[in-house]
């Protein structure tokens, strides 16, 4: 049972992340194809945990499954756009998703202050990636940031009363971990010649952002401070550009340590329920 769980929740997504990253960095598969495959894999991970959503979907969990399946299509439509255009596409998709998710309480006239968090999440996920990083920003900056966010989000979900999404986020962390692991190994072998595609990272940001909208809307015991710290992790690629001046192979560890400085307290806040 535990072994099955390990394969299903961790190993399979990890291998999927490694394969897609390797295909992108070694196999030279077009980045758009990889990005769409990344988005589709995230949707598959969700569906494997939460089941195939019925049509029409009844609950917000089922609705999110459908939105995640649509996200790669949105990415396909947005791939030619500049980062600002992609941000607008994400904001529109995530806002539509949020309104759909809260449709039932909204129609019943029940509102919650907690809904400010998903709105903040959409704003952070739409705006921050459009802020230009320096030319020499580490290729590991965004991938490691996304791993740190996935792990912290997973802890917040599990401790915040959203066990199912917590499991999905464990798998997402493993998937992004596999992607970064392959990127690290390629960099180890090829040095600076292998660039990472922004589109794949955008696909991961789309998926993670939508899951955070769900988490912040429906977690019954969400740590507010922990969640705000989690969102603060999105600033990691801009926080200290001196990290990018470190030897290239030290950069993922440096960003990981920096992520731990913010993500660790986020998890502690959730443990202490603050």
């Amino acid at each position: 049972m535990t072994f099955d769980l390990l394969i299903f929740v961790v190993l399979a997504p990890l291998v999927a992340g490694i394969v897609l990253s390797a295909a992108e960095h070694i196999g030279r598969v077009p980045s758009l194809a990889i990005a769409v495959a990344v988005g589709a894999t995230i949707a598959v991970i969700y569906v494997m945990h939460e089941g195939v959503p019925p049509l029409p979907p009844v609950s917000s969990k089922q609705k999110l499954g459908l939105v995640l399946l649509v996200a790669p299509v949105a990415l396909l439509c947005a791939h030619r756009l500049k980062p600002m255009g992609q941000a607008i596409v994400f904001a529109l998709l995530a806002t539509a998703c949020f309104i759909w998710l809260i449709q039932r309480p909204l129609m019943a006239g029940r509102f919650s202050l907690q809904w400010l968090l998903p709105i903040l999440t959409i704003a952070v996920f739409a705006i921050l990636p459009t802020v230009p990083t320096t030319r020499n920003t580490s290729r590991f900056a965004w991938p490691v940031t996304l791993i740190a966010m996935s792990i912290a989000a997973c802890a917040l979900a599990l401790l915040g009363g959203f066990l199912g999404l917590g499991q999905v986020l464990i798998s997402l962390s493993a998937f992004v971990g596999g992607y970064v692991l392959a990127l690290f190994l390629v960099t180890l072998r090829k040095g600076d010649t292998a660039r990472s595609s922004d589109l794949s990272l955008t696909a991961i940001r789309f998926g993670l952002g939508l899951m955070l909208v769900q988490l912040s809307t429906f977690a019954t015991n969400l740590s507010l401070t922990g969640y705000l710290l989690l969102l603060a992790l999105m600033a990691l690629p801009f926080a200290d550009r001196s990290l990018s001046r470190l030897p290239q192979l030290a950069q993922p560890f440096a960003y990981g340590a920096a992520g731990l400085l913010v993500g660790g307290p986020a998890i502690l806040m959730a443990v202490w329920n603050l």
């Binding site: 609950s59 917000s60 039932r104 309480p105 919650s112 009363g161 959203f162 199912g164 769900q214 019954t220």
Partner: peptide
């Protein structure tokens, strides 16, 4: 929570 009785919705 959303995994069980989903009382918000």
């Amino acid at each position: 929570g959303a995994d069980f009785l989903n009382i918000v919705e």
